[in-house]
């Protein structure tokens, strides 16, 4: 599973992307966030405020209960601030 991190979530985690192999019990987005948080303080700090963590799977916005598959591209980022 390919992970992408953006904006202050990227800055707090300390990397822009990585390939992860979560255990089989990680079936949906919320499971993945729980698993990532346990990997270290950087992840826990970046993801603790779930309300402002937005998720895209294969470049489409999804909810926390969206199911995950091994080959997914999962992006985590704060609310977007484009435009002017």
């Amino acid at each position: 599973m390919k992970m992408l991190y953006f904006a202050w979530i990227r800055a707090r985690i300390g990397m822009a992307e990585e390939v992860v192999a979560p255990p089989a019990e990680v079936r949906k987005v919320s499971d993945l966030l729980d698993w990532l948080e346990r990997r270290g303080d950087n992840f826990a700090t970046a993801l603790k405020e779930r309300r402002v963590v937005k998720v895209a799977v294969n470049q489409e916005y999804v909810d926390f209960d969206h199911p995950l598959a091994a080959g997914d591209e999962v992006a985590l980022f704060p609310p977007v601030t484009g435009g002017h």
Partner: peptide, 26 residues
């Protein structure tokens, strides 16, 4: 279009006011 892209297009801004950098909040 401009209203929708502001809340849906995945862009993030970081401002630098000459002293410090700050992520722009939605």
């Amino acid at each position: 279009l401009i209203d929708w892209l502001k809340t849906r297009a995945p862009f993030w801004k970081i401002e630098d006011d000459g002293n410090a950098q700050r992520w722009v909040e939605a």
